[in-house]
Design a protein around this nucleic acid. Structure first.
Lengths: 222, 222
DNA sequence: GTCTATAGTGGGATAGAC
DNA sequence: GTCTATCCCACTATAGAC
């Protein structure tokens, strides 16, 4: 309240964008913690420091908050990924960079990114279609790095690129459910672990030396 | 309705358990599709074929549905995993069996399992604690298979077992977000792909042959 | 740009007849 | 075990003053 009073005499209307961004951040936190439907506009207003009614000066409705934070999250990760793809020397290097940027970008913007991934189902109509479109575009970029690596002979070709890509997204995305910034594992360290597991697998070197090719044939469980 | 009439003269009250199970299955489908908070008891009642009020003969409240289907999902996957762990010949074999059972059990019971994973946040109090306890117990079992493999020298020891375990759960669990029973990829085929990626990694054999050890040191992206 | 007040809807759950 | 009827509450969103 006092903050708003202070800012308001700097210039009328200048704080609108800032207020909106704060609303987005707070909405993301609540949507992620309790779910979109279970989060009330009352609580968002309280945490932003406004009365319920005042929210509607900045937004059309609750769903716009969800929509805008999904767009924010996807634009950020898309930008990060595009950088990384244009830098690497070979497919493995590009993939490591991509994983690094995906993980750090996702965790730097954790609430928005998690909400985007989980609460897509709560969006409706054109807003929903657009978020899906952006998400698919991102996943296609990841798929390109994988497919390129296969063409270069650097990634295994005995699994369809589609499934190698989905495996990678599995490995990266579920992290949002357990990553805890309070624990002593940095996003950078985590991205190294995930890169290593994805690229090399978990078998020990000894295990790879003998019987490597033979083992490939007996993968099915009883 | 006709079903209920038919069953009801077999023995009064015998259909109660059956009705409850149908309620669970329908609730799971709706909770997964739209979220727990966004699903109304009215809609559950409509799909079950009862009036709203009649639901409360079988349940205390909406949250009980969520709680019971979480328990169902976790008990099923726990049972499947325990079987697989007692069968394998070595750690790799046990892990392949575990992955197979995790994936097939999860996808056979997709709505319940997905809801359990996503909507835990909507449970409160003791119910929530108990589901968390069961989930942690399951994850500990997975962790044991990994740690055992490390002690046997079959899995790599340069990554803490905790993170190898979380990597595996990442790789398996995110599948619920995209697996589509309509597509021509069976849960069995998927579990083979995920096993292979996790155990062997995505590098081609050529990539492993030369410079294998050296590559290990330069994992960090720019 | 924020306030107070309130409209209007739909939610979960209960009571009591059959 | 299911029905009808209803209570009570909390929600999103709007209206209009300042």
């Amino acid at each position: 309240m006092t903050d708003q009073a202070r800012v308001s005499h700097v210039g009328a209307g200048e704080d609108a964008a800032g207020t909106f961004q704060r609303m987005l951040a707070i909405a993301a936190r609540l949507f992620w913690a309790k779910g979109y439907a279970a989060t009330t506009t009352r609580e968002i207003a309280r945490l932003v420091g406004l009365q319920k009614g005042s929210l509607y000066h900045h937004i059309e409705g609750k769903e716009e908050l969800l929509y805008r934070l999904c767009i924010d999250a996807l634009e950020r990760v898309q930008e990060a990924a595009e950088q990384s793809v244009h830098q690497g020397t070979d497919a493995t290097d590009r993939l490591r960079r991509l994983i690094h940027h995906h993980v750090t970008s996702m965790l730097a913007d954790r609430d928005k990114h998690a909400t985007m991934l989980i609460e897509l189902r709560s969006l409706t109509g054109e807003r929903r279609s657009e978020v899906i479109r952006l998400r698919d575009r991102y996943e296609a970029l990841v798929g390109e790095v994988i497919a390129e690596g296969q063409r270069e002979g650097i990634f295994r070709a005995d699994i369809e690129p589609r499934y190698l890509t989905l495996s990678l997204l599995n490995l990266l995305n579920w992290t949002i459910f357990w990553f805890d910034p309070e624990r002593p594992l940095s996003p950078e360290a985590l991205s190294q672990i995930l890169s290593t597991v994805y690229i090399e697998g978990v078998s020990s070197l000894a295990g790879r030396a003998d019987g490597w090719r033979q083992d490939r044939t007996k993968r099915a469980p009883g």
